[in-house]
Amino acid sequence: HSLPGKKTTNKVVSHLVLVEPGEIYASPDLNLPDSDLRTLTTLCELINRELLITIGWAKHVPGFSVLSLADQMSLLQSAWMEVLVLGIVYRSLEMDNELAVAENFLLSREECRSSGLLNLHSVLLQLVRKYRKTKLDKEEFVTLKAMALANSDSSSIENVEAVLNLQDRLHEALQDYEREHHAEDPHRSGKLLMTLPLLRQTANEAVRTFCQIRLEGRIPMHKLFLEMLEAKM
């Protein structure tokens, strides 16, 4: 776990910073030729590991574990790609037109083009530019990520009130944090919330892309990734 970047009095935000997973590294199969096949295989293996980490992380989001198991599953099945996309976008803030899928796995526009990911590259970079312009910081990133999970608009929630409470708690935490750290811009939390539609749109595009890859059947995909993709179909 990484250490908090700055002190905040909001307990939810500081807890989310504390439970934020550490850096992730790709493990490309060097027996494969350096090709789109290797890029996509590396990417799919990475996503499977990220999913495992995301499920472990979700359990530490304050208020998540008290939901019923069915509702925890519904939130994760709806929001997992938004959580993953936000992580890639945050890692890519310092990059120059490259996507930092992992610390040692950067994807250029050209690599994305030859792997059939050009459209995904474009929409992800649109989100990167938006957050770069806003100067999204780590505390805001972790809070938005938890909000994406809680705000997944799943149609099969059993205890709607409990999920709404979770959303309210996270919203309050974000407002609290912005009052403390960005008092100069009273609209900042609203601005951040207004990025969530583009995050949803980008995640949907990513799901479409990987469903297509799955259909083509050229790339090996691990069981958890397949299960989560199937939940989106």
């Binding site: 599953m73 994760l76 299960e227």
Partner: peptide
Amino acid sequence: TERHKILHRLLQEGSPSDI
């Protein structure tokens, strides 16, 4: 739950060996 057994198990128990 049957269709989403890995997620179910991960949330309930911990890490399975066949991910």
